[in-house]
Design a protein around this nucleic acid. Structure first.
Lengths: 363, 363
DNA sequence: CTGTTAGCGCTTTCAG
DNA sequence: CTGAAAGCGCTAACAG
């Protein structure tokens, strides 16, 4: 157990000495944005840095410039394809913008989320992105909001994913519209009797989708009886349980089950099959999100497509484009008024499109 | 576009003044590990901090103490369930240890990986975890290795996931053993004629699994004809393509297709089905990893279970337990000799277990 | 353009 | 136990 001849990391100082220039010059040559260093010096410095294998200490840079190039990303569950796809978008867009992503998972708990936001604030990130459908009720909510507002007050940007109703920028997703269109299309296919599996009704996303779906049906004077709408966990197992519950109640003449998310729909599919019911034949199933795996389940699932990675990219685009204006609570009333220079589409809702597959054959 | 009354963040200084104590005392009361501050002071400081909603500036702390509490995690593709599950484990374990996780995706490119490692080194992370089966050939490999060794030389820990053959600590996974056992079990089920879909043979993980499988078959004097082994991308689409290729060649009397990863197996399943072949009936399929979705495809997939989240946790456990000893290249020859105090199981390979499901009925 | 010199926010000797 | 002061590595005025 020989203990550490732990070499000290190379510092800018070392590079400067090696190159025979001053600290400042070395700094300018290596990291200072504008070109203001004589070429001969610059090359010497760069060479010295390479020779010593120098890497600037980001923390030191951060403290010196009073700001980082960090994006803090909070997701409910990184193993859930919905979030991991969004995360992929956030990470890619961040890398393209030269930002480093820091990540934390909330386990779907608002309390945990609050803790994490507090902790991550210490990073002094430039942007904080919160993706993870949260309940609109919990009391921690208020604390979360004020914590985030404090963060914004110091110049940070907060962007939520699909959380209108909160006083922050958000990547809006056409949840209601998409679900409504799905309903219309399904009715067009000949379906008339529906059941639904939804998450907690306090989950904004789940609620929006369910309501949109119901509205879509209402256009054709179709309703879903109260007992045919079951609320469960917003997960694969929740979907499984929801379908099981429906089964126990007796599906009667139900023709189609709408699950408010694909992971739930996939769970439902398995529950049905285990019960000896063939989805797509005995009963139709539709989901929402269009996560990659729905192409590979049997039958392939009809759903509403969301460009998930785009959602992630959009989040950072919004953050970056609103940087600078400190309308304190950025999204005041009609303030979709972004930085004039900004691609106007950035602040419009992400489009969703219905994708009909074999799980909802026309009848 | 009113510009920023950007409040300056609260500093320790502010807290100290508010509490009427010195900077040093405030520091000790809030972050200094040991209790060496009088209770009355401590409470005043804590109260002041709360009142001002103070959050320590992590960057400043890092530069002052000359080290961070950061874990840098590199994965090939965060949207892939294999990696996102591992990431979930890394993140959870890190949070439990009070570490912040920084994440980057390599897109399966060694060049990109090298870039990222360079960039992330600037963070001065305590640990760097690289998960993402890399090819054993590419030349960037050497650069990567020396970059990582430089990182270790300054006290950082590097942990790979499933990359023996590299001069670093690694979370070993029983890839070969698992595949071998799978082969045995399948033979036990009555299968005799196999085909395989594998990733590039330079991908260590893919190679280990294929070889293990072949060895398992060899024990029963079974071989897979060369043309029945197709190498494709290590992705869902790769699996799809692989099955398609096999189909074009003619499956003849092939009874079972082994794909070296579940995502590939799932893609293969879809290719077969699209070709009108019913997996589980017309032909059996088996995968490797036991990602969550394989329970929900049809038929449920036989595979080799890896406790993916555990792999992630293990990575940080190894990193933390080896901190301190700087055997320069930690894993010299037989050096499984960890810190005496460490849970010995940390450095043993992660166990895999065969899980037989309906995709491989006994015949 | 280049070098000197203050800091940035926090920790940590080193005296009191 | 507490406070003053010296850094940590780097940037950013400020003079030359």
């Amino acid at each position: 157990m020989d203990n550490a001849p732990r070499k000290a990391p190379v510092t800018l100082h070392d590079v400067a000495r090696e190159a025979g220039v001053s600290l400042a010059t070395a700094s300018r040559a290596l990291n200072g944005s504008e070109r203001k260093v004589h070429e001969s010096y610059r090359t010497r410095v760069v060479a010295a840095a390479a020779r010593l294998n120098y890497t600037p200490n980001l923390s030191a840079q951060a403290v010196a410039k009073g700001g980082t190039n960090t994006v803090a990303l909070l997701v409910a569950d990184i193993a859930d394809p919905y979030f991991s796809s969004i995360a992929a978008g956030v990470i890619r867009a961040s890398e393209e913008a030269g930002l480093v992503v820091t990540m934390a998972v909330t386990e779907r708990s608002t309390a945990r989320e609050l803790e994490l936001v507090r902790a991550l604030r210490g990073q002094r990130p430039r942007v904080m992105i919160l993706a993870g459908s949260r309940s609109s009720t919990e009391s921690d909510q208020d604390a979360l909001i004020s914590e985030l507002q404090a963060f914004e007050a110091t110049g940070g940007r907060v962007v939520f994913v699909s959380q209108h109703e909160l006083p922050f920028e958000t990547v809006a997703i056409e949840n209601a519209e998409g679900a409504k269109q799905l309903a219309r299309d399904l009715v067009g296919l000949g379906y008339r009797r529906f059941a639904a599996i939804t998450g907690s009704r306090t989950l904004l996303t789940a609620r929006d989708r369910l309501n949109g779906f119901l509205e879509g049906l209402a256009e054709s004077d179709i309703e879903i009886p109260e007992e045919r709408i079951v609320a469960t966990e917003f997960t694969r197992d929740g979907g499984f349980d929801g379908a099981t519950t429906l089964l126990e109640q007796g599906l009667d003449d139900t023709e189609l089950i709408f699950a408010v998310s694909d992971v739930m729909a996939v769970g439902a599919l398995s529950a049905l099959r285990e019960a000896g019911i063939v989805p797509g034949e005995d009963i139709a199933v539709a989901g929402f999100d269009d996560i990659p795996t729905v192409r590979d389940v049997t039958p392939p699932l009809s759903t509403v497509h969301i460009p998930l990675e785009e959602v992630g990219r959009r989040a950072i685009a919004i953050a970056l484009s609103t940087e600078g204006d400190t309308t304190d609570t950025a999204k005041t009333t009609d303030t979709t008024t972004v930085n004039a220079t900004v691609n106007a589409t950035v602040n419009t809702a992400v489009k969703t499109t219905v994708v009909l597959r074999d799980s909802t054959p026309s009848r």
